[in-house]
Design a protein around this nucleic acid. Structure first.
Lengths: 351, 351
DNA sequence: AACGTTGTATACAACGTTGTAAAGGGATCG
DNA sequence: CGATCCCTTTACAACGTTGTATACAACGTT
């Protein structure tokens, strides 16, 4: 049984307008009147009708987070951080999954469930700037990652080139001479993929190692099975890698499983590194060396950018939107290397 | 720039009512008029204002899924299945996390973002039937798991007792005589916990093995770190287990990591079994023996129950709700055992 | 008495969509 | 010619909330 302002007003013996004033914290309300209204609200368990409120105000207090797949642990962990960061603004987060499919991503970018969300945080895989321009509505959007160059939205990024370069350099610094990479894509559509590959290539050059196509394995998607398949293909190839940089942790965990099945020792025979620092990798056998982006910071920055676009408050006004607002910004979040057993082995003292 | 029915009407040279009739598939619209309107809709990229629509109709087309933690893989995978199942009804799923905290769960049960959702699928950890009765609104709710006895909501469950019994019997059938359990709780608040413990105890009795408190380790939460800590405590205890049944897969993965760190072999020294069949366990070293609930079926059943409560259609009518509707139902979904390396070892032929 | 402040109510309309009722025009059929 | 059907429009109000304007009363101060 949902109660309206009108029902509260009747119960408290005041006007609808007075109840609204109490609910909205309008200062000119006598304390005794306020108490009476609040009591009626509690008795009736009144909750504002947010559809009505949003129609009148133009705001719902809901933002959306659209990620490729929630069951890729990186996105699940990121979602948790976004939900926490959004809580500080008293926002509810609607989580959507695109599956990385271009048509779904276009749908999200052009307005999912229009008018039900105030803003969008979006981690796309396949979108282009053209997709963003065409048919986009005015809902403020923050993109995670460097997927869209020159688009109108704000971006939160990490330096994929530097991070990939650094972790590959770590492997080279351990004396590895045949460093493979898993996660490239044939069509090179994903910008993250290209940047991580560029960082890998730069580190090889830094170390005076040749870039060898035979050591670069593609992956259709970034799940464990894809990592296992790519590692298996590399092991069947003409050049035996002594290290492998995987473009995310789930690829790395799959590769580690494949290495185990081939009777290879980690890291003695093949050192492994990943990217993302998911909890999984911290408890794997061996624990996984990885790039650890500051997920909490990414979430915080994304929510802060969105809040700024939305004017940082819950109440009205036309959002500055994506067309004609301030120029789009790109902010970098931090990362660091987590060096673990999969590259440097087990501390001898622990045995 | 959001366009209204009025803008479409002007562009197509018809009335607002005619545009509404086209949008809603009213049959008495001339084909040429319909074409004209649809063209205007496409040109303006018109999208209905769902707040306005829901205010008028009383429906938003959004359901909520509330789970304890999205970054526990079981819930992330379940979310994916729920989103897929809901898509068949053209529903959008709003995902919320409660952290398993009683006050957050109460908040969810009494109506999160009122009027923004048509129904709720809820996987609570701490709620009681009293919590459900008090202050609950009329939004239809389906509960996942046997958390709430005698409450008014529909339930989708799996037979936790039988499943736990079966996987423990599997370990006993392998000749294991000191089978431990990880995941019990001191306060025994969670029903799943109690049922899995009951199944474990029943299987011990079936096998003529004594129930030994020293082999039952509690866990504060069900993350990998909790499993590792509990396994470490068991290994420091007076009775050395030769098998361990963990109440979920993340506990099991943490326990496996702890066993490895103590130089024990799996499954030779200690056989391990989990519950949930997350992807992680399929690629672990060794692969994890586990109870595999049919997550897609759970999702499908939950969505179907909710659809029934909502009258299976998008348009109007007062939902039958939780008060005064048909009696609450409990439906069981299937599960099976996945026997893998952590209990039976590696197939010899694979080496 | 006049003025300013506080507090409450009334009035109205806005937000975008849609359900109901009624009217009107055109075409067809008995 | 009247009845019926198809099609479109106009009119109105509903949904629940809230922003603006105005009116009025009470109280305190000058």
């Amino acid at each position: 049984m949902r109660h309206r302002l009108k029902d509260v007003a009747q119960r408290a013996g005041v006007s609808v307008k007075t109840v609204s004033n109490v609910v909205n914290g309008y200062q000119h309300v006598r304390a005794s009147t306020r108490a009476r209204v609040e009591e009626a609200i509690a008795e009736l368990n009144y909750r504002p009708n947010l559809s009505a409120r949003s129609l009148r105000r133009g705001r719902t207090g809901v933002i959306a987070l659209a990620v490729p797949e929630l069951d890729l642990p990186y996105f699940a962990e990121l979602t948790r951080h976004v939900v926490n960061a959004a809580g500080a603004h008293d926002w509810t987060v609607l989580v959507d999954q695109t599956g990385g499919a271009i048509d779904r991503e276009r749908e999200v970018a052009t307005g999912i469930r229009d008018h039900l969300i105030d803003g969008l945080i979006f981690s796309p895989l396949a979108l282009t700037a053209d997709d963003l321009g065409a048919g986009a509505d005015s809902t403020p959007m923050v993109l995670l990652g460097e997927r869209i160059e020159g688009g109108p939205a704000d971006h939160v990024v990490i330096d994929n080139v530097a991070a990939a370069r650094e972790v590959t350099a770590h492997l080279a610094g351990l004396g590895r001479r045949r460093i493979a990479a898993i996660g490239a894509q044939r069509t090179a559509e994903g910008v993250s993929t290209r940047l991580r590959l560029a960082g890998y290539a730069a580190a090889l050059a830094d170390a005076g190692l040749p870039y060898d196509d035979r050591l670069v394995a593609p992956a259709a998607a970034w799940h464990r099975a894809d990592g296992a398949a790519a590692m298996t293909a590399l092991l069947a190839g003409p050049v035996r890698p002594d290290a492998v940089f995987c473009f995310n942790d789930t690829l790395a965990l799959g590769a580690m499983r494949a290495l185990h099945e081939h009777g290879l020792r980690l890291p003695e025979d093949v050192a492994v590194a990943g990217f993302d620092d998911i909890e999984d990798g911290r408890f794997a056998v061996p624990t996984l060396t990885t790039v650890s982006p500051d997920k909490a910071e990414i979430a915080r920055l994304a929510v802060a950018l969105l809040a700024e676009r939305l004017g940082g408050r819950r109440s009205g006004g036309e959002p500055s939107g994506r067309e004609g607002g301030s120029p789009s910004r790109e902010i970098s979040a931090g990362y660091h290397l987590e060096i673990r057993e999969s590259s440097v082995g087990r501390p001898a003292a622990a045995r």
